[in-house]
Write a protein that binds this DNA or RNA. Structure first.
Lengths: 199, 199
DNA sequence: TTTTGTTGATTGAACGTTCAATAAAAACAT
DNA sequence: ATGTTTTTATTGAACGTTCAATCAACAAAA
């Protein structure tokens, strides 16, 4: 089976297998043996490509963050108009696309959230993402709100997005994407209602 | 040291030690040895009083849920007036009191959230709490909103509360309780703005 | 003396990592 | 084309560590 250029393939395989394993049995029971089996490879290969289990978990979180960033960036790139509202809706959409709003990605997110509070490497990654969301929101609100109110609105919308997302991850029936997005839209509109927005 | 009636004392000690250990090193590294050391007792005592580690973790989550329920119930019991708004504010207050908004409780909550997705016993507990919050909110909104809109408002406010709470748990600077509560209040007011509320 | 509470060494299972062995593809030589 | 060597990819058994659970022994109160 050995061919050249297997590295990117195996890395992707193992990252996907990690998410699937976390979805299946949770981070605590996602052993290297299970992940490897899920990917259809041997356990030793994980250390070979990622240096160890920690490296694989970090790479998995990086992948998720990258996918999220891409989802947001893509929607902001092809925007109908340049209004703050359009940008903010694109950010909301990106966060609720999340490459895939699959159960496995949401569960993995939640597992990493909990884990990142004590693993320094993961915490760094998580902070970057958190700040990016807040800063993107704040930047757009700032275009039609005073600084203090822009911050307030950004904090509120960020909390709303994460909250909808969290409850979707925890609910057995899963996340109703359209309903969640609508609630975020509604909140956004209220925040902009009393603002003087440029066209 | 052995005296009669140690059971409730030891149980409380070990539950508190569990939260402290989770705060210190996370659920994954909160071993029975560590928890027992934190409580100043031997490791064996955990199996004696809780049947095992799982029993201790479930008891810890139960305690947190109980404290939350108490915090909400207490505030709803001594209400200035009987308006939906007053009840809803009491629910918000209770959720942001949470007996203590300490880092250890928030971290423990988050750890249990992640864990509850794969441990059946914890999932049951978590669902009960989730439904209780939603149902309490919905019930009050229902007093001045049509059913569909009451549900929408309840979902939104629940998401806002959990989201603020989640972001507070993840933020290194911790949760700014007053600011979070104010954002929840603001959202509540917007939801009630277009409603016909009884006095 | 009996009961209740507690200890901590021991046990066995499970885990991540390592590494010698292996196998196939690629490169090279003929 | 064919045979040979080198490189790359992969395996899986063995190892050392860590952990939760157990239980015989013990201590203090009743």
């Amino acid at each position: 089976m050995p061919k050249v250029g297997m590295e990117p393939i195996r890395r992707r395989q193992l990252i996907n297998a990690t998410m699937q394993a976390i979805d299946d049995v949770g981070l605590a029971d996602a052993t290297v043996a299970r992940i490897a089996r899920q990917a259809g490879v041997s356990a030793g290969i994980i250390s070979h490509y990622f240096g160890g289990k920690d490296g694989l978990l970090e790479a998995t979180m990086r992948q998720i963050l990258y996918d999220l960033g891409t989802a947001v960036a893509t929607r902001r790139a092809r925007l109908a108009d340049n209004t703050p509202a359009a940008h903010l809706r694109a950010i909301i959409d990106g966060n609720f696309d999340r490459s895939q709003v699959s159960q496995s990605v949401m569960k993995t997110w939640l597992a990493f959230w909990a884990s990142s509070m004590h693993k320094h490497d993961l915490q760094r990654l998580q902070r970057v993402n958190d700040r990016r969301l807040y800063s993107n929101l704040c930047c757009q609100f700032r275009r039609c709100l005073p600084r203090a109110e822009a911050r307030r609105a950004a904090r509120g919308l960020a909390a709303m997005i994460d909250g909808l997302w969290l409850r979707g991850a925890l609910a057995p029936e899963g996340l109703d994407v359209d309903r969640a997005r609508q609630l975020a839209y509604d909140y956004l509109e209220e925040q902009l209602a009393h603002a003087e927005c440029p066209a």
